[in-house]
Simulated assay, not measured.
Amino acid sequence: MSRFWYNLRVKKILAVSGGIDSMVLLDMFYKSEPSNILVAHFNHGTRESADLDEDFVMRKCKEYGVPFESSKLLLGEGVSEEEAREKRYAFLYHVANKYQGEICTAHHLDDLLESVVINLIRGTFWRGLAPFGNSKIRRPLVDLKMNKTDILRYAGENHLCFRQDPTNYQNDYLRNRVRESLKSLEKEKKVAVLELTEKQKILREEIEKNLGNLLETIVMKNSQGEIFFRRDCFQAEESAVSSEILRSICLEANISLTRPQLLNFLEAIKNYQPGKKFNLPKDKMATITRDFVRL
């Protein structure tokens, strides 16, 4: 299909669960560049039918003649959405690094809208209006402006088979509750939110570009790869600006913080007190001295 504009020299790592969205993604790429794709399937081990999903995707890949990689973890039924997502993306990054490929997921416009609502519920502020900002992950169905109706139509017209995840209808998950509530939202309002998201995406890219330029001036690295920066970088900044700067520095050091952890760490940096404890992930460590912070 000529409307795909992705770099054909880079292998596409397609995240395929077996659901309708990812099977449409697989079929579209198979018809456009069959020799340049690899399917990655992650089995969370959270329900009995998960093994059947994995077998379904594997058989479809054999039918297409497409390379297939899978991983299975027994996360159990009580696993949180966040933990399941982290494990899934860790696997996708592993496969992408193994094949020097580009991760492509089957998210579409309805997923984008749901993510905006969920982010605002969780208090992610301006970043919540610009989800899917990870440049390492491509979302072709979003780029093609496809929503769930488009996907259902494509699957029907092309007679695609797919698996249905029963957890999609359980109210235990926030995303499912948000999805149900959005069904009654008027189409015009959905369009307005998506247009705002597009504008926010452009703003986010500009902010992150400026943050990158700023980090080059304040962040230092030693021969061991440890990151240093001066405490006084934060003294004159507003809290919101300081949070964005610190968040970017932490990501540079492969430290992902929740908002409470970020604010607690920022407070500890601004108000230096020897021996004062602050909240970081258990496997991460930072040292605050009178003049510098080391990650």
Score class of each variant (00 low, 15 high):
residue 191 V to P: 00
residue 191 V to Y: 03
residue 191 V to E: 14
residue 191 V to A: 12
residue 191 V to N: 05
residue 192 A to E: 15
residue 192 A to R: 11
residue 192 A to L: 14
residue 193 V to M: 15
residue 193 V to R: 07
residue 193 V to C: 09
residue 194 L to K: 10
residue 194 L to E: 09
residue 194 L to M: 12
residue 194 L to V: 07
residue 194 L to C: 10
residue 195 E to G: 01
residue 195 E to R: 10
residue 195 E to Q: 12
residue 196 L to T: 02
residue 196 L to E: 10
residue 196 L to F: 01
residue 197 T to Q: 15
residue 197 T to W: 10
residue 197 T to M: 07
residue 198 E to R: 15
residue 199 K to T: 00
residue 199 K to N: 08
residue 199 K to Q: 11
residue 200 Q to L: 02
residue 200 Q to R: 10
residue 200 Q to I: 06
residue 201 K to E: 15
residue 201 K to I: 13
residue 201 K to D: 15
residue 201 K to R: 15
residue 202 I to T: 03
residue 202 I to Y: 00
residue 202 I to N: 01
residue 202 I to R: 00
residue 202 I to F: 00
residue 203 L to K: 05
residue 203 L to T: 12
residue 203 L to M: 12
residue 203 L to R: 04
residue 204 R to T: 07
residue 204 R to S: 05
residue 204 R to E: 06
residue 205 E to G: 01
residue 205 E to V: 07
residue 205 E to W: 04
residue 205 E to A: 13
residue 205 E to P: 01
residue 206 E to K: 02
residue 206 E to L: 07
residue 207 I to D: 12
residue 207 I to H: 09
residue 207 I to E: 14
residue 208 E to L: 04
residue 209 K to P: 04
residue 209 K to H: 05
residue 209 K to I: 02
residue 210 N to P: 07
residue 210 N to C: 11
residue 211 L to N: 04
residue 211 L to S: 04
residue 212 G to I: 02
residue 213 N to L: 10
residue 213 N to S: 06
residue 213 N to H: 11
residue 213 N to A: 09
residue 213 N to D: 10
residue 213 N to W: 08
residue 214 L to Q: 09
residue 214 L to S: 03
residue 214 L to Y: 08
residue 214 L to K: 01
residue 214 L to F: 13
residue 215 L to K: 03
residue 215 L to G: 08
residue 216 E to H: 02
residue 216 E to S: 09
residue 216 E to R: 13
residue 216 E to I: 05
residue 217 T to E: 10
residue 218 I to L: 12
residue 218 I to Y: 06
residue 218 I to C: 03
residue 218 I to K: 06
residue 219 V to L: 03
residue 219 V to R: 01
residue 219 V to E: 08
residue 219 V to Q: 04
residue 219 V to N: 04
residue 221 K to Y: 11
residue 222 N to R: 03
residue 222 N to V: 06
residue 223 S to P: 01
residue 223 S to K: 10
residue 224 Q to F: 11
residue 224 Q to A: 13
residue 225 G to E: 07
residue 226 E to H: 14
residue 226 E to Q: 15
residue 227 I to V: 11
residue 227 I to K: 03
residue 227 I to M: 01
residue 227 I to T: 09
residue 227 I to L: 08
residue 227 I to Y: 05
residue 227 I to G: 01
residue 228 F to W: 10
residue 228 F to G: 08
residue 228 F to D: 11
residue 228 F to Y: 15
residue 228 F to C: 09
residue 228 F to K: 02
residue 229 F to C: 08
residue 229 F to L: 08
residue 229 F to D: 07
residue 230 R to H: 14
residue 230 R to M: 05
residue 231 R to Q: 12
residue 231 R to L: 06
residue 232 D to A: 06
residue 232 D to P: 00
residue 232 D to G: 00
residue 232 D to K: 14
residue 233 C to V: 14
residue 234 F to K: 09
residue 234 F to H: 11
residue 234 F to R: 06
residue 235 Q to G: 11
residue 236 A to Q: 08
residue 236 A to G: 00
residue 236 A to V: 05
residue 236 A to W: 03
residue 237 E to P: 00
residue 237 E to A: 06
residue 237 E to G: 00
residue 237 E to K: 13
residue 238 E to K: 08
residue 238 E to D: 15
residue 238 E to Q: 12
residue 241 V to C: 00
residue 241 V to M: 01
residue 242 S to P: 02
residue 243 S to M: 11
residue 243 S to P: 00
residue 243 S to I: 04
residue 244 E to D: 09
